[in-house]
């Protein structure tokens, strides 16, 4: 039954993608179609990566409220952008070739986030409250650093940084998109391969180790996959904090299962679905293409509050 719902999600995504591409298509068709396809690809990649990465993170952290964004990942991205502009200057940073910058961002973010999550989970994996607090404080620290650096900048440089602070699907480089898609597919496939082991890890560290699962190794691999997914998606469009939480909770609700072989694809499809549907509505129907990130953050944030407030611990 849960599997069938995943199938429905896939069909819905297909239908929506077709609508996204074909809606009011005018001449020059080839050109517009190309633009739309790139945007569609980016939306799907980012949504899928965010959804799957959040499920991985929640399982490894044994907490349903955490997302990579909440423990300081976004702050890390903004600090990186800020430092880049500070060192090279606004014009210099804008002049780096897209492919090179993308590769650099993915690599740096991947390494930094593996270090960040590794630090959080290794030290505090048994104490979730401490882990959340450490993550939030790290986030505040990184944000503080960014702000301090931003104050030292001249206003035109600051404008460049500001652009990078919100997710934007405006201009997508097809080459970047291709690289991102390959990395994401590989990471998703690897995550699916370890789905049964993730199910065992979901029982908690103690029980999982008792059942003979090499928990430390599993956490490490899951962290690396997650770092790859989130880094690629963030480098592609920018940070989206709450989308992961929104998708992961919806995926759990919709499938009603603990099995990662279902949860991972469901969350990935839902993430893509939310972004494509949102962009379609805002861009084609309401005519305000840049509002999507803001709205996703708003609803994700509201959901986070709702989850925290009505949380029942069994």
């Amino acid at each position: 039954m849960a599997e069938r719902r995943v199938l429905w999600l896939a069909l819905a995504l297909l239908a929506l993608s077709a609508a996204f591409l074909a809606w009011h298509l005018r001449a020059p068709m080839g050109f517009i179609l190309g633009l739309r396809a790139a945007k569609l690809g980016a939306l799907i990649c980012v949504g899928a990566a965010t959804g799957a990465a959040t499920i991985l993170f929640q399982t490894v952290a044994a907490n349903r409220l955490l997302t990579p964004g909440l423990v300081g990942f976004d702050a890390l991205f903004i600090l990186m952008q800020t430092l880049l502009v500070l060192i090279l200057g606004g014009v210099g940073a804008a002049q780096i070739p897209g492919g090179l910058r993308f590769a650099f961002e993915v690599l740096a973010l991947g390494l930094a986030s593996a270090a960040l999550f590794g630090l959080l989970l290794r030290r505090d994996a048994r104490d979730v409250t401490r882990m959340i607090l450490t993550g939030i404080i790290l986030g505040v620290l990184l944000r503080g650093l960014s702000e301090m650096v931003q104050r030292l900048m001249d206003p035109s440089d600051y404008a460049v940084v500001q652009q990078a602070m919100f997710a934007s699907f405006g201009r997508i480089d097809p080459q970047q998109l291709a690289v991102a898609a390959v990395v994401l597919l590989a990471a998703l496939a690897a995550a699916l391969r370890m789905a049964p082991a993730l199910d065992v890890a979901g029982l908690g560290r103690g029980t999982a180790r008792g059942l003979g699962l090499d928990h430390d190794r599993l956490v490490l691999v899951a962290l690396l996959l997650m770092a790859a997914m989130v880094s690629v998606s963030t480098a592609l469009v920018g940070p989206i904090t709450f989308l992961g939480l929104l998708t992961a909770s919806l995926a759990r609700q919709l499938t009603g299962t603990h099995r990662h072989a279902v949860l991972l694809p469901a969350a990935a499809l839902l993430g893509a679905l939310i972004l494509v549907a949102g962009q379609f509505v805002f861009e084609r129907l309401l005519g305000s293409p840049s509002a999507l990130a803001v709205i996703v953050e708003l609803f994700g944030g509201l959901l986070f509050l709702a989850l925290v407030l009505k949380r029942r611990r069994p």
Binding site: A62, P196, D199, V200, G202, L203, G204, G206, T207, L211, G212, L213, R252, G256, T257, H258, P314
Partner: peptide, 19 residues
């Protein structure tokens, strides 16, 4: 032990076969 929501009894017992 930690509790997993939506986990069924049969599924939990089944985890004993993991090794």
């Amino acid at each position: 032990p930690a509790l997993v929501s939506r986990l069924k009894v049969r599924e939990l017992v089944g985890f004993g076969r993991w090794p």
